[in-house]
Simulated assay, not measured.
Amino acid sequence: MSEIFEQIDCGVNVQSIIETDDCRVMRLSDSSGDGTMTLYQVFPGVFLMYNDFHMKQCVSGFQTDLELLCIDHCREGRIEQEAGKGAYSYLAAGDLRVDRRINHSGQVTFPLCHYHGISIGFHMKVAAKEIPAYMKGFSIDLYELQKKYCSDPIPFVIPGEPAIEHIFSELYTVPLKIKKEYFRIKVLELLLYLDALELSGHTEERPYFFKGQVEKIKAIQAFLTEDLTKTYTLEELSERFDIALTPLKNCFKAVYGTPIFTYMRTYRMNYAAALLKSDKNMKVAEIAGIVGYDSPSKFASAFHQVMGKTPLEYRKSFV
Rank of each mutant, 00 (worst) to 15 (best):
Y314C: 03
N103A: 03
K277N: 14
E82W: 05
M37D: 12
A222V: 02
V14G: 08
K298M: 12
P311Y: 07
E19L: 06
T262E: 15
P311F: 02
A300Y: 01
I18G: 07
C150N: 11
L171W: 07
G77W: 06
G289H: 01
C58T: 14
M1R: 00
L66G: 11
L176Q: 15
I18P: 11
K136Q: 06
V108Y: 05
R268A: 00
K218M: 15
G35D: 01
E170W: 09
P44I: 05
E286I: 10
G201R: 10
C70D: 05
V174H: 07
P207S: 08
Q305M: 04
L312K: 14
Y143H: 08
L39D: 02
E235R: 11
L142Y: 03
L275D: 02
F299G: 07
Q305L: 12
H54P: 02
S151K: 08
T38E: 12
S297G: 11
Y143Q: 00
D152I: 01
S151E: 12
I102L: 04
R240I: 12
F138M: 05
G86I: 06
D294Q: 15
G35V: 02
G61V: 01
I154R: 09
K148H: 04
H114L: 08
D30P: 05
P162V: 04
F5L: 13
P132I: 06
S119R: 14
L199E: 13
L48R: 11
S105Y: 09
H116G: 01
E19T: 04
L112S: 02
T203S: 01
M55F: 03
L228H: 00
S32G: 11
E205I: 09
P159D: 02
G137D: 01
L234V: 00
I17P: 08
E198K: 13
Y115S: 11
E144L: 12
F43N: 01
E3T: 13
G121Y: 04
Q305G: 14
Y232K: 07
K56V: 09
V14K: 05
S238A: 10
G160F: 07
L276M: 13
I4K: 05
K249R: 15
M55V: 01
F62Q: 00
F168W: 10
L68M: 12
G308T: 09
F47R: 06
I18E: 15
V214S: 01
V319T: 15
E3F: 12
N250T: 10
A273E: 05
K211A: 10
K136T: 02
V255K: 06
F110E: 01
A300Q: 10
H202W: 13
C251K: 06
